[in-house]
Design a binder for these strands. Structure first.
Lengths: 266, 266
DNA sequence: ATTATTATGATCATTTATGATTGTTTTTGA
DNA sequence: TCAAAAACAATCATAAATGATCATAATAAT
């Protein structure tokens, strides 16, 4: 058996177990312990797996660590105070008794804190949002079903059978990776899929996006600007972007970090 | 058992309790006290937990509302060591790579600790089970969608659209409030509803029930004894109940408590 | 075909993980 | 306060895992 062939077998096996032992891999590849150890050492150097005494373990997936988790940490730090102001403005659009949909994301996650004081019906596909609201609020929580993707922190079903179809709310809140004339943009196909499942389940589509998002373009278009009811952003938005939104008929809400907010007609 | 697996089990268990004792962890991992103390020392160095006399405690804020949370506290104290032994026996029926279904309940919840060392596909309708496994294991977690009922700690959809229909596993594990000749019994209609949704989604139906359950009768029949593949219980089961199960063609597994577990029970 | 190079397997000394034993320290409760 | 029990640390023996070395087999280059 060729080295590469063994490596592939080893890597696929390692994914299936908490820790794959040397003897298991010996049996699987019908080679000697020495060979397996050399393979493991090589793959360890290549960071394809982690060598541990007794065998090897998978290097991924990263542990899921909730709202302030590591997988989000890259984005978490950016513009937190602006995101918080935007999230606050979003929650101010809601009243007790309302039913809303919240799509998972770093900006929408900030909504959980002001939502803790509310008494609403909240449907979400974000496990950490549900977790937080369940433990820290009295809201009624409804969750989409499916596989929990740890990286993206969303619950997504590959099937058509999905309670998502049974929920309809006046307002849906979502984030975005980028906004331009083409529409809302995302980079991760999984997130696109999750958002597409939800996007027609509400009357108003409210997008939470700090002003930096207007510079970002990604590879995947989620929906046209015209579909959006409101965009909540911060006061650093450029005039040209403001005009772009006006042309598309999108309401623009500027969230002030001073907790005051100002509405501009669109 | 590998060091890493023990560490996961230990960390998983420590989160649930004010203080996890050495003997509890010995029982849970089936290793010696010396090993557990070394593990605790290691994890203490890594700041994954805090070492205290008698065992270890979580490093996180002490106020935790997870599996041992408020709504469970009534039942939690009853027969914990037996439930733990039964849950252990249940997990021993599983191999890495398997897909299983776990129905929420106090007994099935005990499965999370041994499951922390596995690598499986786990479908559940219990939010706390999903929460715990997501945070403390590398298993793939799949969740049913719907409304989260805080009292019963289950996710339940009143609709037919439900990803539950898309999942099928070799084994499903569930608890019960009572077992008698009429079949499995429950008292709460919501729980009946949740269990009925799942009951046909697996080949084998494995019931976890400590021996006290054979004395309980409730108002609602969930399913006939004949539908059950195996029942895991403890050695206090009466002969007449044993015969009843034999007549219905149900396999009986007696989960033995280890010496340490019995100590804990006292 | 021959040689050089590399991959593999076997052997053995070394290191590491584990469990049992023993003696010491700390806690508990009378 | 003191005695018993529990928890702990230290040590050692054993078994497993590993690393180093060398011999052999496979492969490539000339």
């Amino acid at each position: 058996m060729h080295e590469n062939e063994r490596h592939r077998i080893i890597l696929s096996f390692v994914e299936e177990k908490p820790v794959a032992t040397v003897s298991e891999l010996v049996a699987l590849t019908e080679s000697s312990e020495a060979t397996i150890r050399r393979d493991i050492a090589t793959l360890h150097m290549q960071k394809k797996l982690r060598r541990v005494r007794g065998g090897a373990e998978s290097i991924n997936p990263p542990q899921f660590v909730g709202l302030a988790g590591r997988t989000y940490s890259v984005n978490e730090g950016i513009n937190v105070s602006k995101k918080r102001a935007i999230a606050n403005a979003a929650v101010q659009l809601c009243d007790d008794g309302d039913a809303i949909i919240i799509n998972g994301g770093t900006t929408t996650s900030q909504m959980v804190h002001p939502l803790a004081a509310k008494r609403m019906q909240i449907f979400t596909n974000s496990f950490p949002i549900a977790e937080h609201l369940l433990n820290h609020s009295k809201n009624t929580i409804m969750l989409s079903g499916g596989i929990i993707y740890r990286e993206q922190n969303i619950i997504l079903s590959p099937f058509e059978n999905d309670v998502t179809r049974n929920f309809y709310a006046k307002r849906m809140f979502m984030g975005a990776q980028g906004i331009c004339a083409q529409g809302l943009m995302e980079a991760d196909p999984l997130i696109i899929q999750a958002e597409e499942k939800l996007i027609n389940q509400s009357e108003e589509l409210i997008v939470l996006a700090d002003s930096s998002k207007f510079k970002v373009r990604s590879s995947l278009i989620l929906c046209a600007l015209e579909r959006i009811t409101k965009i909540i952003t911060d006061d650093s938005i450029r005039d040209e972007d403001r005009t772009m939104l006006e042309d598309a008929g999108v309401d623009l809400i500027i969230a002030k970090e001073t907790a005051q907010m100002q509405q501009v007609a669109g």
